[in-house]
Amino acid sequence: MKLSLSREEYARKVAGITPASPLARDMLFAFLTGGGICLLGQLFLEFYLSLGLSEELSGSLTSVSLIALGAVFSLTGLYAKLARFGGAGTLLPITGFSNSMISAAVEFKSEGLVSGLGANAFRIAGPVIVYGISAGILYGAVYWLSSRL
């Protein structure tokens, strides 16, 4: 028996039945998780500064520390568990970048070190780099041109 509903009518029916994501809760958890990771970063920074290191070096060491910690959490599966609740709060900080690379590297190791791990390590992080660099070039060009005026 053929369904006598247009796609638009069906889309309305589906929207009426499909439960929406709990946005308020998701945003609160994202704020707490993301904020927590940033707080951790701040603690790292303060620690390195307290050792008498330069601001630039302390900043780099903070990033490296968070990336390493993100990798450890990823490998133990804890990052995926945290992300179920943290959502964007785990995606945006540099630990999320670490997770995206580690997870792809682990995943594709079974297809070999070159065509598996090597080819796929940037599978998720790749777009961030491509468009990050593109945006940087564009910004640099605008900056250079405007400084000539």
Binding site: S21, A80, A83, R84, F85, G96, V106, E107, I124
Partner: peptide, 17 residues
């Protein structure tokens, strides 16, 4: 997950449906 979505230990949130 490998075929259709993201690596297993990649952190993500899924929708209720």
């Amino acid at each position: 997950e490998r075929e259709y979505r993201t690596p297993l230990i990649y952190g993500k949130q899924r929708q209720p449906s």
